[in-house]
Amino acid sequence: MVNSLYERDFLLWTTDTVTKLKAKRFEQLDLQNLIEEIESLGRNQKKELKRRLLVLLEHLLKRLYVNSPDNHRGWEITINEQRRQLELEIEDSPSLKTIWNESFSAAWRIALKGVRKDYPQVIFPDVWPYSQDIDSMLDCDFWEK
């Protein structure tokens, strides 16, 4: 069996697909792989949101609860970078707001597990004690409250 262009050369397949789409040669499209690729784009955006939230929450937890002033600045830099990246993701795909709470819950669970393992001597809260809405998470320096 001969491998499809998609399997042999992904970049060439994407170029060929774009050419066919622009020429409106829809009957010549590799629809099965095109559908899978478009679906994966959406999944990747959701994963990116969760990844960024995970890193943000881990560093917020460390900044708020780990007594290590020498590390505060580094944690704050990471917090700010994750916030910028989340803002860009949401600006590019505003519909990510609709899965914010679900993504937050998943990221919180994993972040909490991670920091508890890394800092067993520190008592972290079981639930996020601050607002988890998008604006608060992207703007509030919770440690200044």
Rank of each mutant, 00 (worst) to 15 (best):
N3K: 14
S4R: 07
Y6W: 10
Y6R: 02
R8S: 14
D9H: 12
D9M: 07
L12K: 14
W13S: 07
T14L: 12
D16M: 07
D16I: 01
D16H: 02
T19R: 11
T19A: 07
T19V: 02
A23T: 06
R25N: 12
R25Y: 07
Q28V: 00
Q28I: 03
D30K: 00
L31R: 13
Q32C: 01
Q32A: 12
Q32N: 11
I35C: 01
E36D: 11
E36C: 00
E39T: 04
S40G: 13
L41W: 09
G42I: 02
Q45D: 15
K46G: 09
K46M: 11
K46R: 13
K47G: 14
E48G: 05
K50W: 01
K50V: 12
K50P: 04
R51N: 11
R52G: 10
R52E: 07
L54A: 00
L54K: 12
V55F: 13
E58I: 04
E58R: 08
H59S: 05
H59E: 04
L60Q: 03
L60F: 01
L61K: 06
L61C: 08
R63A: 12
Y65M: 06
N67I: 14
N67T: 14
S68C: 02
N71I: 00
N71Q: 15
N71P: 00
N71F: 07
H72M: 09
R73V: 00
W75V: 10
W75L: 03
I77Q: 04
T78D: 03
I79M: 03
N80I: 11
R83F: 06
R84T: 06
Q85C: 02
L86Y: 08
L86Q: 06
E91L: 10
S93H: 10
P94I: 07
P94H: 04
S95A: 15
L96F: 07
L96R: 04
K97Q: 15
K97H: 08
I99H: 09
N101T: 11
N101Y: 11
E102R: 14
E102N: 12
S103K: 00
F104L: 04
F104Q: 05
V115G: 08
V115W: 10
V122A: 01
I123M: 09
F124W: 09
P125S: 05
P125T: 05
V127C: 02
V127I: 07
W128Q: 06
W128N: 11
P129A: 06
S131N: 14
I134R: 02
I134S: 02
I134Q: 05
M137N: 08
L138M: 10
D139K: 14
F142S: 02
E144G: 05
E144I: 12
